[in-house]
């Protein structure tokens, strides 16, 4: 009879193993093999991993990925938090703001890519025409810089609302008494933010940062549609690299190994950031 709790967990366990665990094992298996079309797979050991880690294209993609995720976090988190603070806290405008913020989140990734692709087309696009006024020749297909910041702005446009919504919910949950107490203490707006809003939002911010970190690491469809990873490989991120390796290059073994490396990088980064944020601001009161 002691085993009974397990019975209740069984369906969920089955589902999780089918949807996640078994594929993961399969990928681990593939990563050890060299699979070429038309031949029997043969055991390759860690060869695939070594080859990928030594691949300059992979190193480039990883570097771009880290830079991209870093830029995403340092823009979207403060921007989202700022917007959440500025949002009305009650009244009819709350609904309007929430709907407006929700719209980008409702659009599928590839559609977002297509929308921005139309924006940036050299013949009918808004952006090239706009920059033309200022005498700047904007071209997403030939300028690495233009391609980069366009992908970044697209991601900010698409995902900052999520950060806003998370932070807004967190702010609404802070008891008003904290602000009254700060007011009676004559705390300045900055100090109120620093010692009331920020510490009370810590848990919420950890969630927002982790979600955005993991999601930005997984970015695929938007740059794929918008730039196709170019010009050159300047907007090729880890996901693009992986899919090219596995599907485009017919190297399933390498693709599987890339996926695993990719997987561990995401876990590692998330873990480090989580630990850092958990300890951040604990007892940090000395700098007032």
């Amino acid at each position: 009879m002691k085993q009974r709790p397990w019975l209740f967990l069984l369906p969920a366990l089955l589902l999780v193993s089918l949807s996640a665990f078994i594929p993961l094992i399969t990928v681990i298996n593939y990563s050890q093999l060299t699979i070429l079309p038309g031949t029997e797979p043969y055991f390759a050991g860690l060869e695939n991993f070594v080859a990928i880690l030594e691949d300059e294209a992979f190193q480039g993609a990883l570097g771009r990925q880290i830079l991209f995720s870093f830029l995403v976090l340092i823009t979207e988190i403060p921007l989202g938090l700022g917007l959440a603070i500025c949002m009305p806290k009650e009244g009819p405008w709350v609904g309007v703001c929430l709907v407006l913020l929700g719209i980008p989140l409702l659009i599928p990734w590839n559609v977002v890519g297509i929308i921005w692709r139309v924006f940036t087309r050299s013949d009918i696009g808004v952006l090239p025409a706009f920059f033309d006024w200022f005498g700047y020749s904007y071209s997403i297909s030939s300028s690495t810089f233009d391609a980069w910041w366009t992908v970044l702005v697209m991601d900010i446009w698409h995902w900052t609302p999520l950060v806003v919504l998370i932070c807004y919910a967190g702010i609404q949950a802070i008891p008003k008494e904290y602000y009254m107490a700060a007011k009676i203490d004559r705390a300045s707006p900055w100090k109120t933010f620093r010692y009331v809003t920020l510490p009370n939002l810590r848990g919420v911010l950890i969630i927002a940062v982790l979600l955005r970190l993991m999601d930005s690491f997984k970015i695929y469809a938007e740059p794929f549609v918008l730039t196709g990873g170019g010009p050159g490989s300047s907007t090729t991120f880890l996901s693009t690299y992986t899919s090219r390796m596995a599907i485009g290059g017919f190297e399933m073994g390498r693709g599987a190994a890339t996926s695993l490396i990719y997987f561990f990088i995401v876990i590692l980064f998330s873990f480090v950031i989580y630990i850092v944020m958990l300890n951040l601001g604990q007892g940090a009161g000395g700098d007032q």
Partner: peptide, 22 residues
């Protein structure tokens, strides 16, 4: 207040000092 309102990231000592400091 009914809720226990103190600055969450400050120690009890810093909490007590904060009204005097400002």
């Amino acid at each position: 207040y009914q809720k226990f309102i103190n600055y969450p990231s400050l120690t009890v000592r810093e909490n007590l000092a904060s009204p005097l400091q400002v």
